[in-house]
């Protein structure tokens, strides 16, 4: 009996041995011909028996602006950790396009391949000036030796300049990032994401602690970015989500509870129950 199972396992058609797989090179490039740019399939992560993600399956289309909402502990941050390589799932698959297996790449490789992340707590480099923050984030070689001799080219300056303009920090370019206001730090961080020239932007709670005015600007910024990049926004603030969302995914207990437009989602009785009931 067992040998039969073993043989079956060995002969499975949907999987091949690691050694048969072609070595994966980041430079192979992204393949999004089939539409989605991010594939998460049956991803499970557990911490000491607690299932943070439970067979989560989620697809993000190229150029899409997707909002992910859900109560605390729904697994939103863990999902981002899996995509960026900070956490390894117990099982499941995570692909970037159709060629790049995220589970076989480490954090820095994933970042270089074109997935940028903004953390929940704004983290910029406080002792660097704003322009230096952007310069560090700029796409380009990341090696130690090349950094030693690196000089900013004219193109690089133009790029920094346009991003400064985009995130509305043109006036503050010479300031130390540590001296920026909370909202400005959030924008700077989004700017740093842009400098990386990523295909996918993962944005964790971009408007936490922002004033209404700042929120509006952020909403405008994110909508502008969609199309050029795929943007995944995790947010608590429903009003903000409503203002930007085309497609909303509701996570609950580590799995997708509902998906659709904001109106569809909000009228879904299960969602209502999760947010209001119990």
């Amino acid at each position: 009996m067992s040998w039969l199972e073993t043989t079956r396992e060995v002969m499975r058609r949907d999987q091949v041995f690691d050694l048969v797989r072609p070595a994966q090179s980041v430079s192979a490039g992204l393949d999004t011909r089939h539409g989605p740019i991010l594939y998460l399939e049956d991803v499970t992560v557990s911490f000491d028996g607690f299932r943070a993600l439970d067979e989560l399956t989620l697809y993000i289309d190229d150029g899409e602006l997707r909002c992910i909402i859900g109560p605390n502990g729904a697994g939103k941050s863990t999902m981002m950790d899996v995509i960026t390589g900070r956490t390894r799932p117990d099982h499941g698959a995570a692909w970037f396009g159709q060629r790049l297996d995220l589970l076989r790449m480490d954090e820095t490789e994933i970042a270089r391949a074109g997935i940028g992340r903004k953390f929940q707590k704004p983290t910029v480099f406080p002792n660097h000036r704003v322009v230096e923050n952007l310069e560090l984030a700029m796409a380009g070689p990341r090696g130690v030796w090349s950094a030693l001799g690196a000089r900013l080219t004219g193109e690089g300056r133009d790029r920094i300049d346009s991003v400064l303009e985009e995130i509305g920090l043109g006036e503050a370019g010479h300031e130390l990032a540590g001296k920026l206001s909370h909202g400005q730090k959030q924008w700077l961080e989004i700017g740093m994401l842009l400098m990386q020239n990523p295909r996918v932007l993962l944005v964790d709670e971009p408007v936490a602690g922002m004033t209404h005015q700042e929120m509006d600007r952020t909403a405008e910024l994110l909508t502008r970015l969609a199309g050029r990049h795929s943007v995944v926004v995790v947010e608590h603030d429903m009003e903000f989500v409503r203002s930007i969302a085309r497609q909303v995914t509701v996570l609950h207990q580590g799995a997708v509870l509902a998906e659709g437009s904001m109106d569809e989602v909000q009228s879904d009785p299960r969602v209502v129950e999760v947010y209001l009931g119990e």
Binding site: F47, D48, F50, A52, D81, R86, T87
Partner: peptide, 8 residues
């Protein structure tokens, strides 16, 4: 130490 905090 157990828990999610430790893992992260």
């Amino acid at each position: 130490q157990r828990g999610r905090a430790a893992a992260e």
